[in-house]
Design a protein around this nucleic acid. Structure first.
Lengths: 190, 190
DNA sequence: CTATAAAGCTAATAAAGTTAGCCTGAACTG
DNA sequence: CAGTTCAGGCTAACTTTATTAGCTTTATAG
């Protein structure tokens, strides 16, 4: 008697609505079921358990982020692309802090997360193609970019910045720090 | 009949031992009580509840970190000091990943956490005194340093770096990115 | 029109956090 | 040194959450 017409995606929708509205701490199967209009145990027809739901949420966020970053990077290159991607990243987090804060932890070998992470990494690597980076250097640069951006995002989403100084300005400095630290392609004469 | 001779600090000790050994997911009052050699409800004589225990753990970690960073900064200045502090930060996280990963979240107005955070910030600000930074610029720089270091730490502690490239090398790049992005004090002639 | 299987539901269990209230022995008082 | 007090421990009991088992039903395929 499929009345509610649920699906794994719909369950993730409900879960994300909850963390958006009330923060990661409010994520409970009862709450998800309530929002989905279904009894708690019914969720298990669509999701293996809470841990899997969390992973699916992480995948969802990574995908949304990947799309945003991809759009931001379109038609740009070099510092310009890095700037746009970094700003897009933060704007996503500012718009959905609860959602972003929900996706941490794990370490599971679940393929879906890895795959989504790789797509996200792909965008970053693509943006860094415009620099004079090869092999390992590219990976190191990508890690630095990701660390900076993620660190800022986590701290901001958790309300970790106490002082009243403008966060935009701080982030702009972070952006110049990153772009300034990448080896720019110099016009090379053979 | 105070047999176990517990105290808030001892409870935090037990809790930290658990996250060190089994990760943040294993933190449960039953586990803490077990390690402390006491029945679960007895913990409430020393700690208001699980949330407060988490906050106390966060304070503890911040204090340990502050001490490490302070030591690392001693007798150094400028880029040298920043490098030493950043390396000390990461070395702490590498030594105690579970402990570091346990301290996230919250947003509580609990005074103790804020105070510990301010002491930690104090060390960072002190290290940045060696640069040509004043007022807000100092705050922005401190945030960038903190974001980068924290982001790398979180990702590393959570096993978020999948590729086999050397993490040390990535971190050294991050260090040069940060030091390179700070405005160096130029010999100024009046 | 019927058979089946997916999608709900109710009931039940186990673990975790938390509260209430009892009990005792260590420490302080006189 | 005896008596009082109370911090710190315990057991019992409750609530909430995750999870499992098993029943029921309706969309739908044939």
């Amino acid at each position: 008697m499929p009345r509610a017409g649920l699906s794994p995606d719909a369950v993730v929708d409900a879960a994300i609505a909850i963390v958006d509205a009330e923060g990661p701490g409010a994520l409970t199967l009862a709450a998800v079921a309530g929002r989905a209009g279904v009894a708690t145990p019914s969720l298990y027809k669509h999701v293996r358990n809470l841990a899997e739901l969390r992973l699916l949420m992480t995948v969802r966020v990574m995908e949304e982020l990947t799309e945003r970053l991809g759009e931001a990077a379109l038609g740009r290159s070099g510092d310009d692309a890095v700037r746009a991607v970094m700003r897009a990243y933060r704007s996503y987090v500012v718009e959905h802090p609860g959602r972003y804060a929900s996706m941490e932890q794990s370490a599971e070998p679940l393929g879906k997360v890895d795959a989504a992470g790789e797509r996200l990494l792909g965008v970053i690597l693509a943006v860094l193609r415009g620099y004079d980076l090869e092999g390992s250097a590219l990976v190191h640069a990508a890690r630095c970019l990701r660390s900076s951006v993620h660190g800022f995002a986590v701290l901001e989403a958790a309300g970790g910045f106490g002082l009243p100084e403008d966060l935009e300005a701080s982030y702009e400095l972070l952006i110049t720090m990153v772009t300034g630290g990448l080896p720019h392609r110099t016009a090379r004469v053979t």
